[in-house]
Nucleic acid binder design. Structure first.
Length: 451
RNA sequence: GGUCCCAUCGUCUAGCGGCCAAGGACAUCGCCCUUUCAAGGCGGCGGCACGGGUUCGAAUCCCGUUGGGACCGCCA
């Protein structure tokens, strides 16, 4: 690669499934490198597997990338000077080039297929940006399981190109300067370099990314619970958190920074600093990263992220003032790892229904009830709607308890249950303040805490 | 089986010959805060796989061993 040449990288998924974590990781690193260098990020669809590829999956992959905030400069939908960007639309080029190699005597036909003849006695060496020098004898670049040399299929009997050949043809045609892909492709690289050589083309630079492993230390695959980015979005993970977390798998911005946004990542990203060791996908850390992003979010963004999950619970955030919902959420503080959890934890701000289904006040003894009645009678007498606020309420409660020989807990816990239906919640007086005097009256009366 | 790759706390990592009796983060444990739970603060536990070299000096360089992974489809 010419040092002055503008970086051109590509993400080349095959549309045979949704965008999974591994693919998202690869796409992310390609994107980071393009954005960091001011280069071009290309999306190419490798749809030569006619049985498994669908337009639906192609769309899903694009949606997944958009969800993560990975935009591309050239691709099947946006076009570009090196199109088309779908392999099924580049068939002529593949056959022409393969035929050229046949004419040169470097490949041969076998029925409708075209097979590349693996040369002997050559050394294939390349300098991986991440792994360093990798070298293998040409005879060993493509082998059968028994170790014998295996020629490389370029065009299949159905007329379509194979991955190893199409990738070469396209990366060359699209002027890709750096091929950034998973480490599982490291073994394919020598085969591809052999094809570049036969064609007289200069190979691009290669950068292989460490694999992402499941808890069993095996390459992450469908067997490992959620693998598509949309499953994570459905579980309540924020795109910026997935972005952040995935970037941390094999790379760090340095300076002990672990929580960051896209801009910082773009700014600091360095391909040569990516680690070689495969990384285990740790959900616990993802939870942490997600929680940090949740905490750092602007109130209205947080509200918008949570609204879909409220709706999923059958609640109607649309019937409340945004400010009310945002204040409620602000109260949740650091509680909740995901938007989904936050929606669940805050359901009582939107409706009394969930509270009633969770709490019946069965265990409250007559004596406890009497104390509660006395307390709330004076509290409601003391605080009108205009001065119904957390601070005042709390101070009043503390004073009242002291005077009446009760513990704050005796008041706070039943009150918490009556207002939220939960044993665990933010401060009760703050909840009361947000809910408002009238709503509190309603809920407390329902349980007979107020007469 | 063959080829290639990898190797720092359970996990993600910093470290690129002396600043390391190895730093940070997650997880975990304990304490503080406290109306509950989080959050926050403080602290604990925990690692350079092993063996040889090279060097005045090695987590850092070399070799070997062991362990792990990827690939070996007319799938990509």
């Amino acid at each position: 690669m010419d040092i002055n040449e503008k970086v051109r990288v590509r993400f080349a998924p095959s549309p045979t499934g949704a965008l999974h974590i591994g693919g998202a990781h690869t796409a992310l690193f390609n994107w980071l490198w393009a954005r960091h260098t001011g280069g071009t990020f290309i999306l190419r669809i490798e749809d030569t597997d006619r049985e498994r590829s669908t337009a639906e999956y192609e769309r899903t992959i694009m949606d997944g990338m958009k969800w993560m905030g990975l935009d591309w400069d050239e691709g099947p939908d946006v076009g570009g000077a090196y199109g088309p960007y779908r392999q099924t639309e580049r068939m002529k080029e593949y056959t022409d080039t393969a035929n050229y190699l046949v004419d040169q005597g470097k490949a041969y036909k076998e029925g409708d297929a075209v097979i590349f003849k693996v040369p002997r006695g050559e050394q294939v060496t390349f300098q991986d940006v991440i792994y360093g020098d990798i070298s293998v004898a040409s005879e060993k670049a493509s082998m059968n399981t028994d170790g014998s040399i295996k020629d490389i299929v370029m065009i299949k009997s159905d007329g379509r190109p194979t991955y190893n050949y199409a990738a070469v043809a396209d990366d060359h045609a699209m002027n890709i300067t750096t091929v950034i892909r998973g480490e599982d492709h490291i073994a394919n690289t020598p085969k591809q370099i052999l094809i570049y050589r036969a064609l007289g083309w200069t190979p691009p630079q290669f950068a292989h990314l460490p694999m992402i492993l499941g808890g069993d230390k095996k390459k992450l695959s469908k067997r490992h619970r959620a693998t598509s980015v949309f499953e994570y979005s459905g579980m309540g993970y924020l795109p910026e958190a997935i972005f952040n977390f995935l970037a941390l798998l094999g790379w760090t911005p340095g300076g002990d920074i672990e929580i960051f946004d896209r801009d910082l990542a773009v700014n600091k990203f360095e391909l040569s600093k990516v680690t070689k060791k495969p990384a285990v996908f740790d959900m616990k850390k993802l939870d942490f990263v997600n929680q940090e992003h949740l905490k750092a979010m602007r109130p209205d963004d947080r509200r918008k992220a949570i609204e879909p999950f409220w709706r999923e619970l059958g609640l109607s955030p649309g019937s409340f003032a945004p400010k009310y919902l945002e204040d409620s959420l602000a109260l949740m503080g650091g509680r909740g790892k995901t938007t989904k959890e936050l929606a669940e934890f805050s359901d009582y701000f939107l409706e009394f229904g969930p509270v009633k289904s969770r709490y019946t006040a069965e265990e409250v003894t007559p004596k406890e009830r009497e104390t509660l009645n006395k307390f709330f009678a004076s509290a409601f007498a003391e605080f009108g709607p205009d001065i119904w606020d957390a601070r005042g309420l709390e101070a009043f409660a503390r004073e009242w308890c002291e005077k009446n020989g009760a513990s704050l807990k005796e008041i706070a816990m039943p009150m918490r249950f009556a207002l939220s239906g939960r044993r665990v919640s933010p401060g009760v007086f703050e909840i009361a303040s947000i809910l408002g005097r009238e709503e509190c009256m309603k809920r407390l009366s329902h349980y007979g805490f107020v007469r």
